[in-house]
Computed example of a mutant assay.
Amino acid sequence: MDNITLYLPPSIEITDDQFFEMCQINELIKIQRNADGSLILKPLLGGISSNINAGLTAQLANWNDHESLGVAFGSDVGFILPNGAILSPNTAWIKLERWDSLTEEQKEKFPPICPDFVVELLSPSDTLKVAQKKMREYLDNGVRLGLLINRKSRQVEIYRQGKEVEVLESPATVSGEDVLNGFILNLGMIW
């Protein structure tokens, strides 16, 4: 099943709180919101994609537990970006000082903050062009480092602030660079 984009008439404005509530009662559909207010409906993942997502998140969480420099997230959180979009990367990380600047209420719902680091895994319901657009949107909203992993082509696209996208062919690992100092993402489980 492909992603579905649902366009709403301009007269319907869904607040961040209403959107959060809508997502909670429609738990079998992953819903994201574009900056223009349209909704992206994504089907649940299959076993392979879900397993890979879990492995990516586990690697980041394990590194973060040891370093205690920030907060790691899996694919089940939505972030309210400065442009108004609410997006959910497969894996994300926020520097601790930035996370601690949020109120407890903001942390409980969809946090109004753009992650410092995101990973997107191209799933069978995604197109490369749409995923690349999403990565550019993350960068435009403050992500410092982003990885787009394409299992079919065995490529990783690296997105950095102010730099051209770098494409790696079948890398065994990818560094967290200066954003996640000392973090090495092992991609052996993906290929």
Rank of each mutant, 00 (worst) to 15 (best):
L102A: 07
N53V: 00
K107S: 04
N34W: 05
L139I: 15
S101R: 14
E108C: 00
E120D: 13
N90W: 00
D65H: 11
Q132L: 00
Y7V: 12
N3K: 15
E13F: 12
P89E: 07
P43R: 05
A58V: 07
G146F: 08
L96A: 12
N186W: 01
V118C: 07
R144E: 13
V130F: 07
W93F: 12
E67D: 02
S38K: 07
L187S: 10
S125W: 12
K42N: 13
F183L: 04
L56P: 07
L102C: 11
D65T: 07
L81A: 06
Q59N: 10
K129N: 12
P111K: 04
L60V: 13
A72F: 01
A72C: 04
N26D: 09
G146R: 09
Q18L: 03
G182N: 02
I80K: 15
V77I: 13
E169C: 00
G47H: 12
L180V: 07
N83P: 04
N64L: 00
P9S: 09
Q32T: 14
K133A: 14
S175R: 03
I158R: 10
P112K: 04
W99A: 06
E166T: 14
L81M: 15
N141D: 09
I12Y: 12
E120Y: 04
P112A: 00
G55N: 14
G182R: 01
L102T: 14
L122D: 03
A85D: 05
P171Y: 10
L121Y: 09
I29K: 07
E21I: 03
T173M: 00
Y7E: 14
